[in-house]
């Protein structure tokens, strides 16, 4: 019975050790902070530059690191196609030396009205982990001055006018 307890204690402590080791392994090697803006609340068409600081916390150099914006539409519960926002091109950081810190500026143009979470993501060839910053809230308010009634009137009137014109021409030719 004592042997069983010893074996159990050994296995438990081994399990704890490996878990501790796992935490150490998963510790962020890159730290990303969004410096500005803190929050976005504006109308569609707003052009902004997201400034972020990226620090290599590990003791190895990270090759071919790149930083890019990611956005999640929390209104629709989906990620967005950043091509529409002109933010699909990442910034290449080349090599990040141990302890090195760089600032990047990522442009974006908000086009759709909704609520989003925006964050900066960094990945590198030497690191299997993908690192992201904390998100900032983005709220794009509807500002269109389009008058739907007016658009509807034009859209209905134009084909009708042409149809009447066609009818008129046809009648005139018959005469």
């Amino acid at each position: 019975m004592k042997k069983v307890w010893i074996t159990f204690a050994f296995l438990f402590s081994f399990q704890m050790m490996t878990q501790t080791g796992g935490v150490t392994f998963a510790q962020d090697t890159i730290d990303i902070k969004i410096l500005s803006p803190d929050v976005v609340e504006n109308y569609p068409g707003l052009e902004a530059t997201v400034q972020a600081e990226i620090t290599n916390l590990s003791n190895i150099e990270l090759k071919n690191a790149m930083a890019y914006i990611t956005m999640a539409d929390i209104g629709k519960h989906m990620t967005v196609n950043l091509e529409d926002y002109g933010a699909d091109v990442p910034i290449l950081l080349d090599t990040l030396q141990p302890g090195q810190s760089v600032k990047v500026e990522l442009p974006i143009r908000f086009v759709y009205t909704s609520k989003y979470k925006l964050y900066v993501t960094v990945s590198s060839d030497d690191d299997q982990q993908i690192h992201s910053s904390e998100s900032i809230p983005v709220h794009i308010l509807g500002n269109t001055k389009i008058n739907p009634i007016f658009v509807q009137i034009v859209s209905i009137a134009m084909p009708i006018i042409l149809l009447l014109l066609l009818f008129f021409v046809k009648r005139r030719k018959k005469q």
């Binding site: 569609p44 068409g45 086009v111 909704s114 389009i146 739907p148 509807q152």
Partner: peptide, 14 residues
């Protein structure tokens, strides 16, 4: 542009 939800959320310039 004024009826489809996705398109109606576009900025006017878009």
């Amino acid at each position: 542009f004024v009826s489809v939800k996705e398109l109606s959320l576009l900025a006017q310039v878009e």
